[in-house]
Simulated assay, not measured.
Amino acid sequence: MQAPRIDKDELIRRFNLQPHPEGGFFRETYRAQSRVTRENDGGGETRSASTAIYFLLCDGAHSAWHRIRSDELWHFYAGDPIDIHVIDANGRLNTTRLGNALTHPGAVFQAVVPAGDWFAAECSSAAGAALVGCTVAPGFEFSEFELAASGALEAAHPEHRALIARLGPAAR
C-alpha cells in the first residue's frame, strides 16, 4: 500500500528541523531533567536519563553509519517506511523495516538499536520521505556520537561492503 505523501518542507518549517550531521533533518524535543550515571562509565559523568528527537529522511538522504553508547528506540510517525540496518558486535547484519505496521507489509512501529552497534537508515524507496522519532536512554550526547569511517568499517565487515559504502558519509 502506498503511504500518504508528506510535505517535507511543511514538516521542516512546522517542527523547526535542522540538518543532522549523519543526514536528514532533526530537532531535539525532550531532554530529561533527571540525571543518571552509567555503571560501566569509568568517568562517573552524569547525563540526562533520556532524550528524544524528531528525525526526517527525504530527498534521497540517508542516516550514515554511526554508533552511540546508549540504546536508541526508533518510532514511526508518518510517510514511507525506512530500513534500519544494524551491524552487531559479532558482525551480523540485521535490517528492520520501520513503518506503519497496519499498512506496510513487514514493518514495525518501533525498532531498537542496541548501544555500541553500527547502524544506518534509509527510506525504503529512493523518492520516499519519512518522519520518525528516536528516543535514547541514557540520553544522547554528541560527545558519544561516532560517525563511521567507511573504509575502516568496510575492512572490519567486508561481507557488508556494498551496503556500508552506499550508506557511508561520503556517499551523500
Score class of each variant (00 low, 15 high):
residue 2 Q to V: 13
residue 3 A to T: 05
residue 4 P to C: 03
residue 4 P to Y: 03
residue 5 R to V: 12
residue 6 I to S: 05
residue 7 D to C: 03
residue 7 D to G: 05
residue 8 K to A: 15
residue 16 N to K: 15
residue 18 Q to D: 10
residue 20 H to S: 07
residue 20 H to N: 04
residue 20 H to W: 06
residue 20 H to G: 02
residue 21 P to C: 00
residue 21 P to M: 00
residue 21 P to V: 01
residue 24 G to V: 04
residue 24 G to D: 01
residue 24 G to P: 02
residue 26 F to S: 05
residue 26 F to Y: 15
residue 32 A to L: 08
residue 33 Q to L: 14
residue 38 R to E: 13
residue 38 R to G: 14
residue 40 N to E: 15
residue 43 G to I: 02
residue 43 G to Q: 07
residue 45 E to F: 01
residue 49 A to S: 14
residue 50 S to M: 12
residue 54 Y to P: 06
residue 54 Y to R: 05
residue 55 F to W: 08
residue 56 L to Y: 07
residue 60 G to E: 08
residue 60 G to C: 00
residue 66 H to R: 06
residue 68 I to L: 11
residue 68 I to Q: 06
residue 69 R to L: 13
residue 72 E to S: 09
residue 72 E to V: 01
residue 78 A to H: 12
residue 79 G to F: 07
residue 79 G to Q: 02
residue 80 D to H: 08
residue 82 I to N: 03
residue 82 I to H: 06
residue 94 N to W: 13
residue 97 R to S: 03
residue 97 R to F: 02
residue 100 N to A: 09
residue 102 L to W: 14
residue 103 T to C: 08
residue 104 H to G: 00
residue 104 H to Q: 09
residue 109 F to Y: 15
residue 126 A to M: 03
residue 129 A to M: 02
residue 129 A to C: 07
residue 130 A to P: 02
residue 131 L to R: 01
residue 133 G to M: 06
residue 136 V to M: 08
residue 136 V to L: 07
residue 138 P to A: 05
residue 138 P to H: 11
residue 142 F to G: 04
residue 144 E to P: 04
residue 144 E to R: 13
residue 146 E to R: 13
residue 148 A to S: 07
residue 150 S to I: 12
residue 151 G to W: 11
residue 152 A to N: 13
residue 154 E to G: 12
residue 154 E to T: 13
residue 161 R to M: 10
residue 162 A to W: 09
residue 163 L to P: 08
residue 163 L to W: 00
residue 163 L to K: 14
residue 163 L to T: 11
residue 166 R to W: 10
residue 166 R to Y: 11
residue 169 P to A: 15
residue 170 A to N: 14
residue 171 A to K: 08
